Structures are given as C-alpha cells and as structure tokens.
Simulated scan of single mutants.
Amino acid sequence: MTPVRTALVIGGGIAGPVTALALRKAGIDATVYEAHPAEQDGGAALTVAPNGLNALELIGAADAVRAAGRPVPGMVMGDGKGNRFAEFGGLPGLPASHVLARADLNRVLHDHAAANGVRTEYGKRLTGAEETAGGVTARFDDGTTATADVLVGADGIRSTVRGLIDPAAPDPEYTGLIGLGGFASGSGVTPDPDLMYFAFGARAFLGYWGMPDGRVAWFSNIPEPDAAAAYASRTTPPAEWLERLRALHADDDPGAALLRHSGAEDLFVLGGIDIMPPVPRWHRGRMVLVGDSAHAPSPSSGQGASLAIESALELARCLRDLPGPSAAFTAYENLRRPRVEAIAAAAARTNKEKSAGGPAGPVDPERMFGFVQRFRVDWDERVTA
C-alpha cells in the first residue's frame, strides 16, 4: 500500500485534471492549482488520438471527450498540387481520433474532474516549494501555501516546477515553424468528413478538415528560421497575416481556395512553435513532472495531449504500487522516457519534411502510427521496481 495519500497538482491545463483524476483512482487525494483566475477560452484545435482515448477510458472521461469533439478516423497526405501519396482510414481495431478545440477539451476534463470530487483552485501561481521529510509545501503569489505528500508539475512547457526540480533544466526550443489557423466558408472545398488532409506545399504546409457546419478548419505551418521573428509574429495584425498566407499558398490546391474564403476575424496566430528537448531530470525528492513540463513534442506528432494523458495514468500506477515517491517516480520515468522521446524525435523529422515539401519516401501507416496509437496503459498490471 502506498504511503502517498495527498498530492498538489500544479497546472490546470490538460494534464492537471487528468492527473488528479488518475491519482484519485489510485487512492490519492489530489487538488489542482491553476495560475489563471478562471478556465481559459480560445486556443487552437488539437487531436486526441486512439491511445489518448484509451487512457481516458480508465478515468471515465472518454465519452465526454468524444461528445465534445468530432471523429476523424482517416488521413490523406499529399502535395500542394492536389496529388496524394498516402491515404488510410485509421488503424484496424482502434477507435477514431477526435478533433476538438483545446478550450473544449479543458472544459470537459475540468467538468469531469469536478463531478468526481477533484477540487481546482484558480488564481494560484506557484512561486516556490519547500520539502520536508514528511511532505512538500507549495507557495503561491497570493501569499497562500498548500502542503501534501507529493507535488506534481503539470504546468506546461514553461513549467515553474521543472526549474524547482532542476535549476539547470533546458528551456523550450523553437522548431523553425510558425503556426496559424482559421476557417474557410464557401470555398467549394468539400473534404470527406472521415479524413484529415495534410498538404506539403512548396512554401508552407497546410492541414485541413471539414466541420459539421460546412466550414473547413485549417492550419498552416510556415518555415521561419529567425526565432525572434517567429515569436514576434503574434503581434502582426491578422489581416496582414492573411495576405501573407494567401501569397504563400497561392499555387497550392486547395490551399489557395481555402485562404481566399477565410476572414481575418477568424484567424488565430499561435506564433513560433516550441518543443521541449529531452529533460535530464523529471523528479527530485517529492516533486515530479507530467505532461508538457517533461515532454512536449511538436504538434506535428498529433500526440501532445495523448502523451500527457498516458503519463498521468502511468504516474498514478507507480504511486499506487511502489513504496514511496522516490521508487515511484523512478519507475514512472523509466516507463515513459523511451516512448515520449521516440515520438518527439519522429515529430522533429516531420517538421523537416514540412519545410522540404513532404516525405522523401513512401509512407507506411502501420510503421508510422502503430507504435504510437496502439499503446495502452495497463491499469490492472502491478508496477514493480
């Protein structure tokens, strides 16, 4: 029986409520502390892949996530001229990936956590933490503190907890790509509702899929070697960005049509896309990292949310089965690090292909996605050191 009975979960994004739910399933009382004063609206769309949905089944949240999103089981990869070089309808035996807005996923997970007894405290920005032999105390910028047996850093790619665990921890790295997205209406482009399309254009990459209301959602990745320019891109007026996007995709099919029928009012600019390089230390003492604070692959992986969900369940398993934080955190890292770093490396290769106009060779869906999407967290298997 684990001696860990309570946990502070720092960060109320995707990893935070899932971690708290997983810990409760393991018999550990967890409270989420979120820096912002309320749930955050806006943000881009994301994919919860089959492996993420399978992990969500373990905490009873999969149905709510499916209801908030749209199933898109298949994928088409092609060039900017409309030529296709790979198409598949999903891997046999797996549920369909679901696409939904990040804000909707956050809302669904927080609602499910609250309904299952997880408390979230907003306006709690972490400033420091002190460990004792029997626990860890978090300090927040409003002058309050909270104490528990362990502290979990689910506070994202710019994690405060990561710096507390290791002041020499690396910072996020820029991928060389700027991310933008929007919606097209009346473009004449009618995607198959069961497919997501990825077009490697000569000057920029475009992904798109059909919406239930007839619009086409799209996102573009633009190569930009200057990191400072990429981060400054958030301040560029949307109308100016839209003109630039139309020029970059002017020779692309159907990119040109989609951009002509998109409005600046619907454009969102993610700016420079960052990833986490390998993080040397995932834990120290009674503190540990989960989700993007430990492993944030490029969005090209389609796995950021799903890997965070998997890691939350695996961390809870380890704390459930092993005697004390040190053994549990070590086992958790050993379980997770090889997988997340392999997926991050594959996504980095995809980023290079986006800048180069597409894959250099044939695409084998099972080889590319099987290892990633067929993974299942085995909650009933006991973790051993």
Rank of each mutant, 00 (worst) to 15 (best):
R5I: 03
A7T: 14
G11Q: 09
A15I: 05
A15V: 09
V18E: 07
T19R: 09
A22P: 12
R24A: 15
A26M: 12
G27R: 10
A30Y: 03
Y33Q: 06
A35S: 14
T47H: 10
T47P: 00
V48A: 04
A49T: 14
P50H: 10
N51F: 03
G60N: 05
A61L: 08
A61Q: 08
V65A: 13
A67Y: 00
V76H: 01
D79Q: 01
G80S: 08
G82S: 08
G90F: 03
P95C: 13
H98E: 11
H98S: 09
V99D: 02
V99Y: 12
N106G: 03
L109V: 11
D111T: 12
V118R: 02
V118G: 04
T120F: 05
G123M: 08
R125D: 00
R125Y: 01
A129F: 04
F140P: 06
D141Y: 12
D141G: 10
D141I: 05
G143M: 10
T144G: 11
T145I: 06
T147S: 14
L151C: 09
R158W: 15
L164K: 08
P167R: 07
A168D: 15
A168C: 01
P170F: 03
E173Q: 15
G176A: 09
I178P: 06
G179Q: 01
S187V: 12
T190P: 01
D192W: 02
P193R: 04
L195G: 11
G201N: 11
R203I: 00
R203V: 01
A204H: 04
Y208C: 03
F219C: 11
F219G: 14
P223C: 07
E224H: 01
P225V: 09
A227T: 13
A229H: 04
R234P: 06
R234E: 12
T235M: 10
T236P: 03
P237L: 06
P237A: 07
P238A: 11
A239C: 01
L242T: 05
L242H: 11
L245D: 02
L248I: 07
A250M: 05
D252C: 11
D253N: 13
A256H: 15
L259C: 06
H261N: 15
H261F: 05
A264H: 09
L267F: 10
L267A: 10
L270C: 11
V279L: 12
V288E: 11
L289H: 07
A294I: 13
A294K: 02
H295F: 14
H295T: 02
S301H: 03
S301E: 03
G302T: 09
G304M: 05
L307E: 11
I309Q: 02
S311G: 15
S311Y: 00
R317S: 13
C318N: 13
R320F: 10
S326W: 00
A327K: 11
T330P: 00
R339I: 07
V340R: 05
A342S: 13
A347N: 07
A348Q: 14
R349Q: 15
T350R: 14
P362D: 15
P362Q: 12
M368L: 14
M368G: 00
F371R: 14
D378V: 09
D380M: 06
